[in-house]
Amino acid sequence: MSVPSTARPGARLRLAALLGPPMVWLVVAYLGSMAVLLVSAFWSTNTFTGAVVPVYTSGNLLALVTDPLYRDVTLRTLLVALGVTVLDAAVAVPMALYMSRVASPRARVALVVAVTTPLWASYLVKAYAWRVLLSPTGPIAWLTGGHSSGYGIGAVVVTLAYLWLPYMVLPVFAGFDRVPDSLLEASADLGAPMRTTLRRIVAPLVLPAVAAGSIFTFSLSLGDYIAVTIVGGKTQMLGNVIYGQLITANDQPLAAALSLVPLAAIVIYLLAMRRTGALENV
């Protein structure tokens, strides 16, 4: 057997030595912090000093449910994340179809590199680029004769969609790639026009890949506050409110409680997406 089985004591020792340090780091630093996050959402702050005191309160979580401000912000954030996801899917699907099914083998490689490279360009700079593009004296205003839509919730959706587009293109491209040619040929041989083949054969097979991409576009949009601050004008999303509570209001427990909202939204979204088989595509 080529792969050492853990049945042999030497192999088990080596595995423990290899796995120990990274697991200790991730469990202590990461999962441990997540546990602190959960617990501290139930802590209170000293009314005079603002210091966190580990005294139980359900007030932070109650505020989430009862305060209409948080309800509105949550709803707005979810809508923005959905809008970004739909926009990215609409742009990415034809691109991925071309890259996978039309482009020559050489062009494919070049296209994957071309889509991937902007992913590594600074996130902050990309958001800033849209601030420049949309500014009242910027290129869009110049091209349209002063009709730039300016900063606001629309700018947030466009900018976030721009930021996360490669995250959608790459899995969908891989999804198109996995569709076997034989199925398409069989469909054509049986007399289906291309439109029917795309709709009845390709679409169901690629849907899990779109769902996989949407996990990124949705999840990354939910927590964003930087791009919103840069192009959103007065728009408030969950990220801004969490940031404000922690940094400006210095209310760490409330910030922790608020950050459970995007966390919960993503867990629910992941569970929903699991039904589509998306998680095997990530």
Binding site: Y30, S33, S219, G223, D224, G239, I242, S259, L263, I266
Partner: peptide, 9 residues
């Protein structure tokens, strides 16, 4: 998971 959740945690 979003950076803000990791960051707050």
């Amino acid at each position: 998971l979003p950076g803000i959740v990791t960051g707050i945690a």
